[in-house]
Structures are given as C-alpha cells and as structure tokens.
C-alpha cells in the first residue's frame, strides 16, 4: 500500500515538475497520468507478466478510484456557497449549461456509437 501511494505521489510530483518546467497549460496530475501510463506500457512491452508491485499498484489505484465522487464534494460545496457570484445571470447560465451539455453528450455519443468496433479480445 505504502509503495503504491509513494509511486502515485512521485508521478504527480514529476507531472507538476514537467508542467512548471515547460510552462504547459495541462495540469500536473494529468501529465503524471500520462507519465505513469507510458512507463507501464513500456514495461509491458518487455515483460508481460505483472510483478507483485504492479499488482499492488493496480489494486490500490482501483480502490482509490472507488471514492472518486467523494473528492468532488469540497469544490461542489464551494459552488453552492458562491452561487451569488452569478447574480442576475444565474438562470441564463444554468439554462446554457443544461442545453449545451445535453446536446454535446448526444452528438458525441451518437458519432462514437457508429464508429466503434467490436471488441474481440474480451
């Protein structure tokens, strides 16, 4: 467990470093994700059987991801407490968001559904 936590933090730290160093607009953690994914894929190319360490990392990450919704609560509460910032525009903004989001979901899903191939490797 501790090894996995350390690994995750280390990759996030590396991501933050890369972001600052190259002054990128992508957040550090997303760069950390790309770095960790690259390392795993590279490793997989030479050695297909997962090590004990890798198995532990997989299970720790998956249990962390189970709580993903919980992590949005602090920001979400901030939104409710600061809704007054939108003032008289609140209704227009909410309407734009609802219509815009639902239309985007429909278009993207529609196109994707038609382009996807069947998975034969399941």
């Amino acid at each position: 467990m501790l090894n996995s936590i350390f690994t995750i933090f280390l990759f996030q730290l590396a991501g933050e470093f890369v972001q600052k160093f190259f002054e990128l607009s992508i957040p550090g953690p997303v760069i950390g994700l790309i770095l960790l994914l690259s390392v795993l894929l590279l490793k997989n190319r030479y050695n297909r059987s997962p090590s004990t360490f890798e198995r532990e990392l997989v299970s720790s990450c998956e249990s962390l991801l189970n709580y993903l919704p919980l992590l949005f609560i602090p920001v979400g509460v901030g939104v409710v407490m600061h809704l007054t910032l939108l003032e008289e525009n609140l209704i227009s903004v909410i309407t734009i968001i609802i219509l815009g989001t639902l239309l985007t979901l429909a278009i993207t899903g529609f196109i994707m559904e038609r382009l996807l191939k069947e998975d034969n490797q399941k």
């Binding site: 995750i8 953690p29 950390g32 994700l33 960790l36 795993l40």
Partner: peptide, 30 residues
C-alpha cells in the same frame, strides 16, 4: 479530501492501461 484529486487523476492511468487494447482498437473512432 480535496487534496486527493491530484493523486486520483494519476491513478486513472491504471484502468486506461488495463484496457489499452480497446483504446488502440478504436483510436480512429476516439
């Protein structure tokens, strides 16, 4: 709790890694 948003973003690498073949298969669609 808010702090964990960063690490959990890094952790998203794991499910993507495990389903990598699906992503390669559908890279054009994506």
């Amino acid at each position: 709790i808010h702090f964990l948003l960063g690490p959990v973003t890094v952790a998203l690498a794991i499910p993507i890694y495990r389903k990598w073949h699906l992503i390669i298969l559908n890279s054009k669609a994506i």
